[in-house]
C-alpha cells in the first residue's frame, strides 16, 4: 500500500471482522497471519516491551521480503536482516544501545545495499502512525523542516492555508500487521499497559491486523472493573496469546528489567566472529526452541527472578 493511502487502508479494515469475541490463540497461529512481503510494525521501543515471542515465531516460519517499522530498532532488526527476512526498515534509530556502539550487522546489510534503511525523525514516525490511526492521509508538523530527512522519506512541505507558514507533512503509515507485547489482556483482546505507552496504541489502530502477546490473560470482570485502564479495545485486535516474559531479555515495565549482560555477550560474539555469530545465535535462541518456554529456559529461572526484582526496585 502506498504511504498515505487512507482510502485503501479503510477498505481493508472494513473488509475484515472487528469482533469483540474470543481471540485467544497460539504463537504459531498468530504469527501465521503474517504474509511474505508484509509491512510489520513492532511495538515497544528499543529494548522495552519488544514483542520477541511473536518476532521469534515469524522468523521460525521463514517469512521473506518483509518491511519492518519501529520507532527505535534494537537487535531484533539484526535478526531479521541476518535471516534474510527483511528488505526495508523504517525507523528513526537503529542500534542496540549507546554502550554497544554501531550495529555491525545493520551496517553490513545496509552499506552493501541488501536492506534499505528509511529514516524519519522520532516524532515524524510517531505522527505517521498517528495519522494512520486517525484514518487521515497525513499530518502537519514543524519538525524535520530543512533537514535531509525530508528527502530521505516521502515528506512534503506545504504552505499553511491559514497562516502562510511552511509546514512539513508526513504521510500516514498503515502497516499490514502490528505486533505488541502488553502487560494484560482479556481473551477478547482488550489490552492494559503499565508504564511507558510508547507508540503501541497508534500502531494498533494504524495496522490492518493486530497480533498481541500479553504477559498475563485476565478475566472479563477484571477488564470491566477498570475500563479506564483499557488502552486498546478488543475490536481492534485479531489475536491474543498469553506469553509470560514475552519481551525477555528486553524489559517489560514493572515486571522485569532488561538483562544487559545478555546484550554484552551477544555483541561480544558478533564483534569477535561477525555474521557467523548471529547465525549461531539464531540457531540457538530462535530456531531450536520450539516454544517460548524452551526459549526462556536458555536464560534460566534465576536470571529472570533477578531481573524481576530489579524492576520492582526501579518502579515498584
Amino acid at each position: 500500500m502506498n504511504p498515505g493511502d487512507f482510502v485503501e487502508a479503510r477498505r481493508r479494515l472494513e473488509a475484515k471482522p472487528h469482533s469483540a469475541g474470543e481471540k485467544l490463540t497460539t504463537l504459531e497461529a498468530a504469527a501465521g497471519r503474517v504474509r511474505d512481503g508484509d509491512h510489520v510494525a513492532i511495538g515497544g521501543c528499543l529494548f522495552s516491551r519488544t514483542p520477541l515471542g511473536l518476532l521469534r515465531e515469524i522468523l521460525r516460519q521463514r517469512r521473506r521480503g518483509l518491511t519492518l517499522s519501529r520507532n527505535l530498532m534494537c537487535y531484533e532488526g539484526e535478526w531479521f536482516m541476518a535471516a534474510g527476512a527483511v528488505e526495508r526498515v523504517v525507523t528513526s534509530w537503529f542500534g542496540i544501545g549507546l554502550p554497544w556502539g554501531l550495529s555491525r550487522i545493520m551496517r553490513e546489510q545496509v552499506e552493501s545495499g541488501r536492506v534499505r534503511f528509511e529514516e524519519w525523525s522520532h516524532l515524524a514516525l510517531g505522527l505517521r502512525y498517528r495519522a494512520a490511526a486517525a484514518g487521515v492521509p497525513f499530518l502537519p508538523t514543524l519538525t524535520m523542516l530543512g533537514s535531509d530527512l525530508m528527502a530521505a522519506g516521502q515528506a512534503q512541505t506545504m504552505t499553511c492555508p491559514f497562516t502562510g507558514e511552511t509546514l512539513c507533512l508526513v504521510p500516514a503509515l498503515f502497516p499490514d500487521v502490528a505486533l505488541l507485547n502488553v502487560h494484560r489482556a482479556d481473551r477478547f483482546g482488550n489490552c492494559q499497559i503499565d508504564g511507558y505507552p510508547h507508540m503501541d496504541v497508534d500502531i494498533a489502530h494504524a495496522a490492518t491486523t493486530v497480533l498481541v502477546t500479553a504477559e498475563e490473560i485476565i478475566g472479563d470482570e477484571e477488564i470491566r472493573r477498570h475500563p479506564d485502564r483499557t488502552v486498546i479495545p478488543g475490536i481492534v485486535v485479531d489475536a491474543v496469546v498469553e506469553v509470560p516474559f514475552g519481551s525477555y531479555p528486553h524489559e517489560c515495565y514493572g515486571r522485569y528489567e532488561a538483562d544487559f549482560s545478555h546484550f554484552d555477550a551477544y555483541v561480544a560474539e558478533i564483534t569477535a566472529k561477525g555474521t557467523e555469530a548471529i547465525h549461531a545465535y539464531l540457531a540457538r535462541y530462535v530456531y531450536a526452541p520450539r516454544t517460548h518456554q524452551e526459549y526462556l529456559a536458555l536464560f534460566g529461572e534465576e536470571a529472570r527472578a533477578r531481573q524481576a526484582r530489579s524492576a520492582r526496585e526501579l518502579v515498584g
Binding site: 534509530w93 554501531l102 551496517r107 552499506e111 525523525s121 522520532h122 516524532l123 524535520m144
Partner: peptide, 21 residues
C-alpha cells in the same frame, strides 16, 4: 553518499525533533 553510505550511523532518534522544536 546518501544513497549508498560508506558508514550507516544509527540515525536521528529524537535529535532532529529536539533541535527543531
Amino acid at each position: 553518499p546518501h544513497e549508498r553510505p560508506k558508514v550507516r550511523l544509527p540515525g536521528s532518534g529524537g535529535a532532529n525533533d529536539i533541535i527543531s522544536l
